[in-house]
C-alpha cells in the first residue's frame, strides 16, 4: 500500500540563503556530502527557536498537525547537529511546500489581497485605497483583529540604525536604508 500523501506545508518566509558552509583550515569540503534541509524544516526551526512560537502555534502557521510539526522539528534538530558535528555543509532545498505571503482583507470593499512585496508594508487596499485593512487568515477564513505588532526593534549592526520590528518578516530579510547591510533583532521578547 502506498504511504499516505504528505500535506503541503506553508512557508511564509523562504530563507534568503541557499545553505551554510563550515570554514577553517581543517575543513575539507570535498570529502563530505552536504546535508539537505528541506524548506519546511528550515521554517519549523525558525518558527520554533527564533520566533519563539510553541509547537502548537507554529504548526498552525505551517498548516500541519502538531505531531507532524514536532516530527519535522525533530528531524531538523538532528540534521543541524549532524552538520555541526561532522563539519558538513548545509543545503536548504526542496520538501513538499508552498510559499505564501501574508493575506489581508479590506473592510470597505470586502476584497482579499496578498502582499507579494514582503519588504514593503501595505497601508492601502489596492482596489478602493481604503486604509481599513486587516490581516486575514486564509486557512480559517476569519479576519485577525489587527496585524500583530511587537515592540522589538530591528537594528543595523554597522551603523546603529533602528526601526520597529514587523511581525512575520524576519529582521534578517530587511535591509538598512542607510548602509544597505542586513538588520538584526535587538530585543527578544517571549511571544507567549
Amino acid at each position: 500500500m502506498a504511504p499516505r500523501a504528505r500535506v503541503f506545508r506553508k512557508i511564509l518566509n523562504p530563507p534568503p540563503m541557499k545553505g551554510f558552509k563550515p570554514y577553517g583550515h581543517n575543513v575539507n569540503e570535498t570529502v563530505n556530502e552536504p546535508i539537505l534541509i528541506h524548506f519546511e524544516e528550515y521554517e519549523a526551526f525558525k518558527l520554533c527557536d527564533y520566533d519563539m512560537y510553541t509547537h502548537h502555534q507554529a504548526s498552525e502557521i505551517m498548516g500541519v498537525s502538531r505531531p507532524t510539526f514536532t516530527r519535522i522539528y525533530a528531524s531538523v534538530r538532528k540534521k543541524v547537529a549532524k552538520a555541526f558535528a561532522e563539519n558538513r555543509q548545509i543545503s536548504i532545498d526542496g520538501g513538499k511546500v508552498y510559499f505564501d505571503s501574508d493575506w489581508y482583507s479590506c473592510k470597505t470593499c470586502h476584497c482579499y489581497f496578498n502582499n507579494p512585496q514582503r519588504n514593503i508594508e501595505l497601508v492601502n487596499c489596492p482596489l478602493c485605497k481604503s486604509e481599513k485593512i486587516y490581516g486575514y487568515d486564509v486557512e480559517t477564513g476569519s479576519a485577525k483583529n489587527e496585524v500583530e505588532h511587537i515592540a522589538d526593534m530591528c537594528v543595523c549592526a554597522s551603523c546603529g540604525y533602528e526601526e520597529l520590528h514587523k511581525h512575520g518578516s524576519p529582521c534578517k530579510g530587511e535591509m538598512c536604508p542607510q548602509c544597505g547591510k542586513r538588520l538584526t533583532r535587538k530585543v527578544k521578547t517571549n511571544l507567549n
Binding site: C111, Y112, F113, L127
Partner: peptide, 10 residues
C-alpha cells in the same frame, strides 16, 4: 506569489 504579482480576490 513568486512572480511578485499581487492577487486580489473579490
Amino acid at each position: 506569489d513568486s512572480l511578485k504579482i499581487q492577487m486580489i480576490v473579490v
